[in-house]
Nucleic acid binder design. Sequence first.
DNA 1: CTTATAATATCATAAATTAATATAAAAAAC
DNA 2: GTTTTTTATATTAATTTATGATATTATAAG
Lengths: 258, 258
Amino acid sequence: MGQQDTLFVASLEKGLRVLEVFRNQRENLGITDIAHATGFDKSTAQRFTTTLHRLGYLNRDERTRRYSPSIRLMDLAFTYSHQDRLAEIARPRLIEAGKRYNTSVNLCVLEGTDIIYTLCIPNQTASFMMTLSGRRAPALCLAEGICIIAFRRSDEIKAIVGASEITRFTEDTIINRSAIMRRIADAHSKGYGIGKGQISSDEISVAAPILDSTGVAFAAVQIPVFQPNWNLSDVESNLAPLVLDTARSLSRTLYRTT
Amino acid sequence: MGQQDTLFVASLEKGLRVLEVFRNQRENLGITDIAHATGFDKSTAQRFTTTLHRLGYLNRDERTRRYSPSIRLMDLAFTYSHQDRLAEIARPRLIEAGKRYNTSVNLCVLEGTDIIYTLCIPNQTASFMMTLSGRRAPALCLAEGICIIAFRRSDEIKAIVGASEITRFTEDTIINRSAIMRRIADAHSKGYGIGKGQISSDEISVAAPILDSTGVAFAAVQIPVFQPNWNLSDVESNLAPLVLDTARSLSRTLYRTT
DNA sequence: CTTATAATATCATAAATTAATATAAAAAAC
DNA sequence: GTTTTTTATATTAATTTATGATATTATAAG
């Protein structure tokens, strides 16, 4: 419609899009970089970047005149995380689960076609990136994504699979949509998802969904382990029951019918 | 100046102020709540709240028509945290430090007159709130705040103390500015800060600053322990050397002169 | 040193935001 | 259950703000 949507504040969207640009970058960005990444005119990029800096959400390197995300973004995360009841309840249980075989254990949710990790209980060897909550990855490549999607209504499953951009991470990444659908069906029948070499060639991942009172999944418990320390058979024997038990205990605590 | 600052986008500020309102709330907020908390006209509150919802940063409860922070805020935090080199380097060292006496160990930075926790390595008994990065607290009440401030230039120290709103948390919270200045001087001479019963009546906190190559502090390593499991004397004997060693090792890794 | 690129600053215009107001829905009081 | 109050939603003319073209300055690259 040509007429303005008077309830939508496009300037706010633009500012947030500038912030979002930084999440895919490692290095600091100049005004021109931001203009390119957002598609904005350079004076638009200048105004929004300068405003975010003045509000404290971006840092500016005086020498290079480049910008980087500010710690003030952690404030916004806290806004969400201090109300995250699932993470609060899950935390001690994930810690217990992690002790069993000395593994990392993560809690994650489906957000669009991605998985976001909301609580990471890393083991000693976990890389820094793997310890960060807020990390995103495409759901269809992940055991945890597959097992959440497997416990959604079939129209939603089709919609998510249809909307997903399929990304190949390794030689073994399953990218065929039919094979992905079979993988989803398999997770539904087993009650958990398992994947090997989907995101990195040495990773084996197992996950079980957390279900609400209607049997619909929105979150999962996941354990990543690595070859050659673990093989598929041992993961299936030892870790699958562990994620299942942990997820089920969370489902019962949160959503049991009274 | 009456004339417009044409480089500043006030609409973006307003939108971010709406988000910021939620960080001090536990319960969901309606349009009227947001209008009150921000001072905006209710149609302004409506437009910005609706826009944040449409962009995915707020969730809306259809039944109550109230809003809450969305997990998408974790995206923004990740934007910051995946570039946090100090946290990346510090993480294994804080884990090691925590093993010594089975305590939580935190990394924090000064932000304005507050401390923000950027990395929390909780022990088994840590409360959920204490496990959350992004959490803020007033610097002058905290051993970690005091010890960072103690290693700033004296003009900055005066400015921070002057700008701080003094909050009393317990009967023992030091609120007298002269006493606070003595506490800062004490932290400077000892090289670490220590506090008992400042934030909660049973807490003892000890922290050491991380210094850059000029000897200026911007971050600290902190250990919180609780009475009656710990007393001041044992904290001073056992935990103060531990935070000092950990902080010094980080200072050397990050900022040693070549 | 010169040229190219990026950043910064300015301003007339178009577009967006404001807040007053009307209407609808829900909550609270009776 | 009804009435009143409060909150939410929707609309719009007036006012303010954001846009992008352009000029200027600064820095990087050759």
